[in-house]
Amino acid sequence: MTTDRITGTKTSASTGLRAVVRIEGLRKSFGSLEVLKGVDLEVDRGEVVVILGPSGSGKSTLLRCVNLLEKPTAGTIYFEDSCITDSKVNINHIREKVGMVFQSFNLFPHLSARANVALAPRKVLKRSHEEADRIAIEQLEKVGLGDRVEYLPAQLSGGQQQRVAIARALAMDPHVMLFDEATSALDPELVRGVLDVMRSLAEAGMTMIVVTHEMGFAREVADRVIFMDDGIIVEQGSPTEVFDAPQHERTKDFLGHIS
């Protein structure tokens, strides 16, 4: 592992500026259960990568390894110039630049929408109160919640809550956004609003790694679709390649079940 890290650091410098996230030989076990069995993945700047796969295939775990919410058992992950699996790296600095949106929103229930968004800019980026509030209101307006800034999470619908969560992540001005089944907990009629926000983010050039079950979104927005099963990447390619001409049985199986 040590040698990996050393060689990895060298190569990361040589890959140039395009790769924002690079994952090499990633393994993750929970006890005796191996969830990720060696994953290699590179995500370029401005790229939208959608990860598909049946539940339990390890796609959420892969995403959560990118900002070290899960600690990899083996393998290396680079974020821009830093090897984040190196224990010397201050992970909090990396996380400032990696936004994450959760399936269950995870808004801070005691804070208004504005305060939810403004908290991290104030405490982590040390912005002034006014500056943080200005950022918060701007981001909330971007996600279409300019009229809800003083609402508590409990007073908002699920779709609105998830859009606040997106605004909260964006307020940190991240270099990459991770979406972990962002619409799975929402009522069907609320999904569209969240997907619209994600789509416009992609159009604005945000680097995104998206775990979702929204095939329509994947087909329309993704630059690359990755199909995972049983802890490995089974197949990847452009949406057309994966959806219209899947190469592997497992991919065909999965897509067949979905549609």
Binding site: H93, S104, F108
Partner: peptide, 24 residues
């Protein structure tokens, strides 16, 4: 999820405790 959300925003343990967890 509250701890994870705070962590994902780059907040350290003390900040998470004082601004997110303890108020709740």
């Amino acid at each position: 999820g509250q701890f994870e959300a705070a962590s994902s925003l780059g907040m350290n343990g003390v900040q998470t405790m004082f601004f997110v967890i303890i108020p709740q």
